[in-house]
């Protein structure tokens, strides 16, 4: 009996979470523009979506900002975490305290504060400002996932490598870096998804005329939803589902091999 109730509960929550998404996907094939009537199956919203240059450029902007922000924030975040080992405890806790600010603060305040900075410095809004903003809010996520690895690190192997004649760089790459890789990878993944999903900070730092997917959708919604957006949702959902299946498959097969 308990099992049945538990199952039922899981299913109900899953329905709550997925029924809306399924509805969107169904509507993306609805040839009637009305959401209340089924007008027959069509792929025209998909063809319209693919010929829409605004969507294509917003998608390009979103992806390139996310990729660049991930690369920069991962490098800066990882180097800073490594440097933390050699810093005084006081400076270390000061740095961590400041790093926590963007994570704790509301996105709207972070967005506004960066907007004020960019206006003050007369940096033209657009690609560069969004990229700077994204690197800023991504670094804490990278540091958060690399830092625990650094803390639990054993430096004796590194010292042994030095004693055995390795140069510091070689010793670092061979002994310390491999231990950090899982933290770096999960930090980078986190940064990438945060960047892709961000709306609020992008909204305040983008300026006019430059759109990412999030800001484009927000503008569209204010004007009235076009069915192309449903097609876009369906594609994004399928891509996310596929990517997650791939990511979650990979470590599972590894542990089985062991």
């Amino acid at each position: 009996m308990k099992k049945i109730i538990e199952r039922l509960y899981l299913i109900l929550i899953l329905i709550f979470m997925y029924a809306p998404i399924v509805t969107l996907i169904v509507l993306s094939f609805n040839s009637s523009k009305s959401r209340a009537r089924w007008g027959g199956f069509t792929l025209k919203w998909y063809t319209r979506l693919f010929s829409d240059t605004a969507v294509a450029s917003a998608l390009f902007n979103t992806l390139s900002i996310a990729i660049l922000a991930t690369i920069f924030s991962t490098i800066i975040g990882t180097i800073t975490c490594i440097a933390m080992v050699g810093l005084s405890p006081k400076l270390r806790s000061l740095i961590m305290g400041v790093t926590n600010i963007p994570m704790i603060n509301a996105d709207i305040v972070t967005g506004i504060s960066l907007m004020l900075l960019f206006r003050f410095l007369h940096i033209g809004s657009g690609f560069a400002t969004i990229l700077l903003a994204h690197i800023t809010f991504n670094i804490p996520f990278v540091m958060l996932s690399v830092m625990p690895r650094i803390k639990s690190m054993n430096f004796y192997v590194y010292e042994a490598a030095l004693d055995l004649g390795a140069t510091p760089v070689v010793a670092f790459v061979k002994t310390i870096l491999p231990d950090l890789v899982p933290g770096i990878v999960s930090g980078a993944l986190m940064a990438f998804t945060m960047s892709l999903d961000d709306f609020i900070i992008t909204y305040f730092t983008k300026g006019s005329g430059f759109e990412t997917l999030s800001t484009l959708i927000y503008n569209e919604v204010k004007r009235g939803i076009q069915p192309e957006i449903y097609a876009l949702s369906a594609i994004i959902f399928i891509v996310v589902l596929a990517l997650l299946l791939i990511i979650y498959r990979a470590p599972n097969t590894k542990t089985k091999e062991k």
């Binding site: 809306p20 998404i21 509805t23 969107l24 999903d197 709306f199 959708i217 876009l232 994004i236």
Partner: peptide, 12 residues
């Protein structure tokens, strides 16, 4: 899923 698309779902 994009945050705005999730919200848009409920508008629909």
């Amino acid at each position: 899923m994009n945050f705005l698309l999730r919200t848009l779902t409920w508008m629909t």
